[in-house]
Amino acid sequence: MSIPFTTQIINLLASILLLIAFAMLSQRRILSLIKLFAWQGLALSASTFVVAYSTAQHHLYYSAALTLLLKVLILPWLLHRLIHKLNVKWDVETLINIPTTMLVGIVLVIFAFNLAAPISQLSESITRGLIGIALASVLLSLLMMITRRKAVPQVVGFLAMENGLFFAATSATHGMPLVVELGIALDVLVGTFIFGIFFFQLRETFDSLDITHMEKLKDD
């Protein structure tokens, strides 16, 4: 059984996406984390482009361009600027040590593939089998948000999670309507702005970006 060339490329890009997700999970430095995030965005944009080409759906070209613009250029730039202003280039502290996190991550990937198997059987689209990857990268990003102590990596985790969701949308259903995609893109952008403001507030209040300080906000 020969697989069409485009599908092979998409599969390749999907695996890159998953690999980057793992890389982000293990990355200790914030700057590299943001770079990885940009690369993940690029992979996503490329895969969307290929899906658009192979299925000849024009609106997917727009969303590929949008992804490129937003996730590869604007958001990393915003995050860079934020880090510069906050002066937080130090290492990322994790709550659980990295090898354990990776092991948990592998379990999650197996879980996600297992879960996605029946859905992929149903799917008629050329990109079937990728739902597992998408789901895995969502779960991995969520794991990353849980295990990081500082606020900035958590935001990167949040954005990466959105990448996974977006990938699921393009791979399983050939993309959402453009209106929805525009809406989500705007949400992500606004969300990042809000996080940025939140960082400054956090630093002003606690003199640190360590979110464990927020335990004090609990109402007794």
Partner: peptide, 14 residues
């Protein structure tokens, strides 16, 4: 359920 720890909240979600 309220600890004030974001990690735990995220773990609930997860």
């Amino acid at each position: 359920l309220q600890h004030g720890r974001i990690h735990l909240y995220l773990t609930y979600t997860f």
